[in-house]
């Protein structure tokens, strides 16, 4: 199972405790989280389903570069961090 950790700052809008889900890509992992927390989707993804401009995702410490399709692979024992980029101010 993939461990998913969300930025603390999102918690006051949507409760997203650390969780474990199944998924082989970044998108599959995020969709698995949104299946349980549908209101979280619009906080992380934009209207077209891309990562919001100032959000970042790390897979085992490496920042995801494919922010549109989110197709980068995630290993079965990976950790995914969903954070805010400093660039957002």
């Amino acid at each position: 199972m993939v461990r998913v950790v969300f930025t603390q700052n999102i918690q006051r809008h949507v409760a997203l405790p650390e969780t474990e889900v199944a998924g082989g890509t970044v998108r599959e992992v995020l969709e698995a989280v949104f299946a349980d927390s549908p209101s979280a989707r619009s906080y992380v993804l934009d209207d077209q389903g891309a990562l919001r401009k100032h959000m970042t995702v790390f897979v085992d410490g490496t920042m995801v570069r494919d922010r549109t399709t989110l197709a980068e692979p995630v290993g079965p024992a990976s950790t995914v961090h969903v954070f805010q980029a400093l660039s957002g101010g």
Partner: peptide
Amino acid sequence: HGHFGVKLHRSLAGGGFEEIATPTYPE
């Protein structure tokens, strides 16, 4: 919310607000 995007809220009869749908562009 900057990083987390634009949101809309509507007032509740008993006070306070609740989040409602945000206008979202189609695919």
